[in-house]
Computed example of a mutant assay.
Amino acid sequence: MKAYNESWVNNRAANAKIKAWELEGVLKESEIEPLEDQFYSPNVYVWMGLFFFTSIAISFCSGLFLSLIGFSENSSVLGVVLVIFAGGLLFVLETFIRNKKLYWSGIDNAMLYCILGFLIAAFYVFTSSFSPPFYVFSIVYFIFSLPFIYRYAEPFIAANTAISLFIFVSLILFEFSIFKPLLPFVLIVISGGLFLFLQRTEATLYYKKAVLFTSVVSASVACLASNFYVVKESNEALLKTDFVGVSSVGFWVLSFTVPLAFLFFGLKKKDRVSFLVGLVGLEASVVAVRIYFDFFPTEWALIIIGLLLGVFAVFFLKFLQKTKCGITSATSRKEGLQNIEGIVFSQAFHANDGSNSIEFGGGDFGGGGASGDV
């Protein structure tokens, strides 16, 4: 069961699209009435303030209570108190969402992070006498966060959950010396598999940002795990080994192959996330080449690369003014006009229960309907 009103989430996305159409001149102002959305969701500056002060308030109240009672760090009673804190804060969070109509307002985000923090701290207290390895905490965080992702779809929690999975896999492999050299390949396979799974998942608007953040994390891990500089320096620091011969050539190939795969996948599927991550990964690979092979002085290298990037940018902006293979640099309004009909129909028949929600995306890569939009 979802914590937030899903029909309002869909309506908020529709209202944002309607506003964009009004600014672009596709619609006249107030031609379509805004759909129902009673959420309280402030701008980014108010969000930061509410998040900061809520976190301070929770920390102050819980710390003051614990200091007055005076529990020791390893006391099992402390673990029970932390669980009670988490339960009480969860009750307050649910009450605020229901009565104050919060939706990622900073207050509910801070409460969610604190609830997870209390639960992890309670687990640490309960298991402190056993001194479990760190990978146990990473998998416990992964398990604890899954119900929160399902109910609240909080994007940062979703991203951290993916990171905890990668940490767990890395630490498990490091427990066995024979598997340590395989770590980059395992991370590439898991992160790439997770990315493809998320791309094939038909996520609703309610989970769209959570899927987006997790996709960015998984694609970034794949690019990092294949980057020659990251792998070489990590091996020297952790395994005290260096790359020579075939292994060196193999990772140079991977360093460019994986980002290029994301780059072409993004072009083919018109997906901004994979395209931009692949572009950044490819840039990181070029930087790695620069670090290990000093062809030009730094000043000349920066000038040449800057000129080449400028020429390529101008060329492709002009070249893609007309659609080439479904890709364009111009804003696409075709998708917008198609969705206007759906919004008018939904508004006329009051179909705002979430079952007939309007799905945005699927337009040209350079237009407003690209699947990477949030």
Rank of each mutant, 00 (worst) to 15 (best):
D108L: 07
F148S: 02
A57W: 00
G70Q: 14
N5L: 06
A203S: 10
L112G: 03
A219M: 01
S255Q: 06
V169G: 09
S129Q: 13
F264I: 04
R290S: 12
K318C: 07
L27F: 05
F126G: 08
A301E: 05
L182Y: 05
L212V: 03
R272Q: 12
E359Q: 14
Y141A: 12
M48H: 04
A153Y: 04
T331E: 08
G367N: 07
G363S: 03
E154S: 13
Q199D: 08
A351N: 03
L90S: 07
F123M: 15
L198A: 10
W252C: 06
W252E: 11
R290K: 11
N11C: 08
V217N: 01
L279S: 15
Y135K: 14
G363M: 04
P132I: 15
W300N: 09
S247M: 10
I107A: 15
L194Q: 01
L119H: 13
L119Y: 13
I303L: 13
I303H: 04
G49A: 14
E233F: 12
G363E: 03
S274M: 02
V136H: 02
V286Q: 02
S371W: 13
V286W: 06
T204R: 00
I188L: 08
W300P: 01
D364R: 12
L66K: 13
A284V: 03
G363I: 03
L308R: 00
S55T: 04
V280T: 14
F118K: 11
N99H: 14
N5D: 11
S55R: 00
P259C: 06
N11W: 09
G79T: 13
Y207F: 08
S215V: 08
L182P: 00
L146A: 11
K101Y: 04
D108I: 09
A284C: 07
F365E: 05
L194Y: 02
Y141C: 04
K28R: 15
N109W: 04
I139G: 06
R272S: 14
F360S: 01
